[in-house]
Design a protein around this nucleic acid. Sequence first.
DNA 1: TCTCACACCTC
DNA 2: CGAGGTGTGAG
Length: 479
Amino acid sequence: MADQEESFGPLHSPGGSESRELPSENKNEKQNGPTTKSPSSQTTYIQQGMEGIKVYLHERELWVKFHEVGTEMIITKAGRRMFPSFKVKVTGLNPKTKYILLMDVVPADDHRYKFADNKWSVTGKAEPAMPGRLYVHPDSPATGAHWMRQLVSFQKLKLTNNHLDPFGHIILNSMHKYQPRIHIVKADENNGFAFIAVTSYQNHKITQLKIENNPFAKGFRGSDDMELHRMSRMQSTKEYPVVPRNTVRQRVGSSQSPFSGEIQGLSSTNAISSQYSQCDSGVSSTSQDMLPQSGSFPLPHEHSQEYHCIKRKAEDDCHSSEHSYKKSYLESSSSEDDHYYRPVGYTQSLSLAGGPYRSESSQRQACMYAGAAQGAEPVPSLEDISCNTWASVSPYGSCSVTSMQPMDRLPYQHFSAHFTSGSLVSRLGCSPGTGLQSPTASLQGNEYLYHHGIPRTLSPHQYHTVHSVSIMPDWNENS
DNA sequence: TCTCACACCTC
DNA sequence: CGAGGTGTGAG
């Protein structure tokens, strides 16, 4: 590790950053320290504890070497690992705070490429983006001390071209350009709530709480005893309890559109930008870059995202995972719901990151497919990551740290979570028992990531996914 | 282009 | 050894 210091490219630094359009590479170098601060109005701000976070890409030289030629990554139906693998060194985290590290891969542009005459060129428009999936590092959640102790490796992450992939691998389109990003999410113990899905309430106390607090169950308020008895009777008999039914529909139904109602929302987004280094050191921030665009993208797409988590196994450099089991969760939510829950500020804060290139319809479709594929999966479950803060980093170029505040509403749409390893709850959740993760949080986070993490302006495209071997892109535009 | 079987490696 | 990752070449 130490020896590699030089091979690490700083990914991010605290401080706001100015928005930029240049390739991260160029800009990054220029901006190492905190640069401009973003307007507070932008909601961009540095969250407490996130200011000093820095992420360094391991073996940056190797990435550069590939980058100069036009990096390509094979994608197969079964899933293929990336090489170079993504490994980073993280510093500046609060040793005691828990964080979730995850990675996603977003479209670098909306073009389709071809390799001819020994060079890459645009051939047309990109295929609709796949549902965004997130790869949650197997060690998540873990303390800052844990993450900083050694390199954080994402080498187990796999890329696939199977739109119906049931393994939680990141789905990409061949001959399209993508950019990998790493996100650091500060676990928020306050958002860590878990729940047990049921088709009818098992605990009368819960039924009572629902009636007392859910406005749609007002009709059952009143003389409790009577009501309770009635309720319990109905439940036991499997009848269709009016109240429960609604409730059930909402909650349980969540299997499909999960927590739409329950989730908390994203918060106003706050993003911190950090700096990244593209190839060298600098990193630039993205957050701001992204934020500014607020407004540009009205909305969130409905993509489903997945969290993929693999169980860790000690090995290699760092954290890696091995066995695993996965859970997948798919949700589909109606756009109405989305609307309903979407925080006001949400739209504004969203930005592009991959957004621009995705269409809702396509997203949905993807979701559907995913759902089908996942149907086979054993136990779909939803997990969520509760968090307030995100930091996203991409190898080449950009790193951003964003923070989110808990919201009351939920903001989100569908996401699906895939975990290869233990339950997220334990992993992501902060506190078992009562709190765990609610899908909501994760969702939010995801969206957030998607929108903010990125870089459209930022960085250069990192690589092309190709099915077969090949070649080199013209990185000129970027670098 | 993509898929698949397969030899070769690493762990 | 077996499991699993990788690139290759045939189809």
